Amino acid sequence: WVPTKREEKYGVAFYNYDARGADELSLQIGDTVHILETYEGWYRGYTLRKKSKKGIFPASYIHLKE
């Protein structure tokens, strides 16, 4: 896992994603996520609506905010 280059990196989910394991994070369309790390097509972070739950999710489900 590699920390993100920018201190504040955010994105928005444009697909729903159902977590398949305890380390994964479920997403709903429109969720804003804070991205902490990246690795081979995956991000690690949390949604702003539930900051206490961190997990991994596919990068392809996220539109990055500039």
Score class of each variant (00 low, 15 high):
Thr4Glu: 07
His34Pro: 00
Tyr17Leu: 01
Gly21Glu: 09
Thr47Tyr: 05
Glu66His: 14
Tyr17Pro: 01
Tyr39Gln: 09
Arg6Tyr: 11
Tyr61Lys: 07
Trp1Leu: 08
Ile29Lys: 12
Glu40Met: 14
Glu40Ile: 07
Lys9Val: 11
Gly21Asn: 15
Glu40Val: 07
Tyr39Gly: 06
Tyr46Lys: 03
Thr32Ile: 15
Arg49Tyr: 14
Ile29Ala: 11
Ser52Pro: 06
Gly21Ala: 11
Ala19Met: 02
Lys51Gly: 09
Tyr10Lys: 04
Lys65Ala: 11
Leu36Cys: 15
Trp42Leu: 02
Phe14Leu: 15
Lys54Met: 14
Leu36Thr: 08
Ile35Asn: 09
Arg44Ala: 05
Ser26Val: 03
Pro58Phe: 10
Thr38Arg: 14
His63Asn: 08
Gly11Gln: 04
Asn16Thr: 07
Ser52Cys: 14
Leu36His: 03
Glu24Val: 03
Ile35Phe: 03
Tyr15Asn: 14
Asp23Lys: 06
Lys50Tyr: 13
Ile56His: 04
Ala13Lys: 04
Gly11Pro: 00
Val33Tyr: 02
Leu25Thr: 00
Leu48Pro: 05
Phe57Glu: 00
Thr38Glu: 14
Val12Ser: 02
Asp31Val: 07
Lys65Leu: 15
Asn16Glu: 08
Trp42Thr: 00
Tyr17Val: 03
Tyr10Gln: 05
Lys5Gln: 10
Lys9Met: 14
Pro3Tyr: 03
Gly30Thr: 00
Lys5Trp: 08
Glu37Asn: 04
Arg6Glu: 11
Asp23Gln: 09
Gly11Tyr: 04
Leu48Phe: 10
Gly11Cys: 10
Tyr15Ser: 14
Asp18Asn: 12
Glu7Cys: 15
His34Asp: 00
Tyr39Arg: 15
His34Asn: 03
Gly21Ile: 05
Leu48Asp: 11
Ser60Ala: 14
Leu27Gly: 00
Phe57Asp: 01
Val2Cys: 12
Trp42Ala: 00
Glu7Ile: 10
Gly21Arg: 09
Asp23Ala: 08
Trp42Glu: 00
Gly41Leu: 06
Thr32Gln: 12
Ile62Thr: 01
Glu24Gln: 08
Tyr10Gly: 02
Lys50Thr: 11
Trp42Ile: 01
Val12Cys: 13
Asp23His: 11
Thr32Val: 15
Tyr43Pro: 00
Lys54Asp: 05
Leu25Cys: 04
Leu64Glu: 04
Ile62Arg: 00
Lys9Phe: 09
Ile35Thr: 00
Leu27Phe: 04
Leu48Glu: 10
Gly55Asp: 02
Tyr43Thr: 00
Thr38Gln: 13
Lys54Tyr: 13
Tyr10Pro: 00
Phe57Tyr: 01
Ile35Met: 14
Ser26Ala: 05
Tyr15Met: 15
Ile56Gln: 04
Gly21His: 12
Glu8Cys: 14
Tyr61His: 15
Lys5Phe: 09
